[in-house]
Design a protein around this nucleic acid. Sequence first.
DNA 1: ATCCCTCGGTGACTTAGTTACAGACCGGCA
DNA 2: TGCCGGTCTGTAACTAAGTCACCGAGGGAT
Lengths: 198, 198
Amino acid sequence: MSIAHYFNGYHDIRIPAGQPVLHQGDECLNYFLLTAGSVRLFTRSARGREVTLYHVRPDSICVLTTSCLLGGRRFPAEAVADTDLRVRMMPKARFDDLMETAPSFRDAVFQSLAQRMDSLIQTIEKLALEPIDVRIAKYLLSFDTALIQTTHQLVASEVGTAREVVSRHLKQLADKGMIQPERGAIRILDPDALAKLT
Amino acid sequence: MSIAHYFNGYHDIRIPAGQPVLHQGDECLNYFLLTAGSVRLFTRSARGREVTLYHVRPDSICVLTTSCLLGGRRFPAEAVADTDLRVRMMPKARFDDLMETAPSFRDAVFQSLAQRMDSLIQTIEKLALEPIDVRIAKYLLSFDTALIQTTHQLVASEVGTAREVVSRHLKQLADKGMIQPERGAIRILDPDALAKLT
DNA sequence: ATCCCTCGGTGACTTAGTTACAGACCGGCA
DNA sequence: TGCCGGTCTGTAACTAAGTCACCGAGGGAT
């Protein structure tokens, strides 16, 4: 189901962590495949608050780019490299050709669109219906490591709230001994208790 | 770009207003085309609160069904008829065949996926970043009529909040003379003032 | 007329978001 | 080594939104 081999012959481009990849309103002229790293897609409000829409990870294509290419629209979000990236780019003409002629390519693109649709819907449900502490707990548990390298600001963006709110909730979790706050990181002490929150 | 003609030969099925069309977890075995009416797609929380994801209107296909069919997953939301419906159903096998052999059908499906993706992203932005009164005002202005047949409960579901919150905000708008609340309806008195809120 | 059900209103309280700071930590550099 | 500027975190005070519990108004059915 992977479409990586369709990108054989295209060279990796390297983008360092923290670098913007695409801006809201950009035109999409290329189709991207991420071969290493992680990209965060998010939108920003006028007052500077951010919501993360999703992350693109290796071998998963960027759905927003797809939607852009297909619909001929502008890119609807900000994209920033979470980590150092390796990216391959395919020109739109080649993308269109593959969509036309390569059923397995087309299927893979459809699959990822469908999957991303689901994930966006889940995001909407969470934002509208879940209390913040549950969202934070789930997010923390979504890592498989005990020490999570992140900041309150990033967590806030992931769960769709303000940094101060995250700080408060993390403090409460720390007071109950479930986590251990560190600078630039959060250590999970009691994942079972966290899971019970959700 | 319309795909209606691919549904020639399929008969209309009628569904009365208020009737559920699909439930969360249902299997999708058919592809739908709405020829008349409007369907509301939403999810419900454990405590009974609802968020509307989007509406399907005539000649626009149901994207969630698409995503269901393509991904072989269960239907991720509740679907209820807003109004009396006329619907045509196409079996999955025929859908798959058209996707394979009819480029214009395929393009239309892609287009609607891409478009819906955009609208879901906008919904996320609104939920996370816009204050309630702005969301309500925008929603009211999205009708082109002055008299909107709706309930506070429905408005709440559209803007992703609780009924009581809507009632309170509507009262404030009424106190300022922008709207006139009626039972089962809202009359817009001063659209310009409403627009200034947004 | 009465019953029932939906719809809307409201008070009291909890949770979340904003504003406006201050202090802690860290790396670079004099 | 100590200072400086940046990022990251803590927190108080306030506003906005969400929840809970309840009541009353309207309108259709019998």
